[in-house]
Amino acid sequence: MNKTIRFSAASIAMFAAIGMGSVAHADTATADATAEILDALVLNNDGGSLDFGTMVVSGGGVVTLAADGTLTCSDPDIVCSGTTGVAGFSVEGTANKAVTINLPTGSVELRHPSYTPATSAQHAIELSTFTSSENGGTGPEVTLDGAGDATFDVGGTITLDGSEEAGQFDGTFDVSVEYS
């Protein structure tokens, strides 16, 4: 969990402009001060990583962590425990603009520390079907509110074949945002 002190889109823009080193030249005594205002887009990872908790696996099955945080772990051969968490993000930018969220369309492989290609059955888990809590007409999309803020969460589905060795499986997945 995470608290961010919010700053306005205007201050982002100012900051960016000053970061660029743009200087308002005063050529005459009555010169206007000018500042370049740039639109900025900010992405924060507030909710950490996608965490399925701990699973004791005695057979194959599927575990789904929905983007709203609901865990579905109903296969009898898998016992889920521990804290789960979706990956939460916040976006800051221009008010009322739509932002496309890009999630992996394929699957991602998670690997055990002792992974080798020969032992991929025990040492790899496939995570597929990334889902977003915010969706537009045909896919993940979020509209920034009047203050230029929005949040979204990412969930996913893992498929276990029952032979996974105990341990922590690590992996990464790509998330990016862009103004629609």
């Binding site: 699973m55 922590q168 990464t172």
Partner: peptide, 18 residues
Amino acid sequence: QPAEGVSIQLIPIYGVTI
């Protein structure tokens, strides 16, 4: 490393495109 059971650490690589 849990002595028993499987846990998953899935780290997002996140960013902005323009």
